[in-house]
Amino acid sequence: MIPILGLAAGVLLGLFLNPTVPIWLQPYLPIAVVAALDAVFGGFRARLDGIFDAKVFVISFVSNVVVAGLIVLLGDQLGVGAQLSTAVVVVLGIRIFGNAAAIRRHVFRA
């Protein structure tokens, strides 16, 4: 319940405040969002599996975001930022799909 409330409140805040993304953050924000989404999906799946652990969730959330950001930062430093962000998004997207499939099996038994 808390995550859903937090998400909704965050979205509303973002829509109402409508802040400008600082330029230095612009390459990382989308990646961070995708990484966090991956963590959220993983957490939701764990919850459905009955093995949800708040600590695991929090740490995986933070580390996902940080690692994804670091990879993109590294890529930027190496001059392959665009490719590495694509790679990160692809990997995270695959994992989100996997988690979504597990959630789907739980919810629809199919």
Binding site: I2, P3, I4, L5, G6, L7, A8, A9, G10, V11, L12, L13, G14, L15, N18, P19, T20, V21, Q26, L29, P30, A32, V33, A36, L37, V40, A54, K55, F57, V58, F61, V62
Partner: peptide
């Protein structure tokens, strides 16, 4: 943990909305 989860998800929602807006 609940507070952390709440804050994190709130951040995620916020970042999501902001990113969608700026994109």
């Amino acid at each position: 943990a609940s507070a952390l989860i709440g804050i994190l998800t709130l951040l995620l929602g916020f970042a999501f909305a902001v990113q969608v807006r700026s994109a």
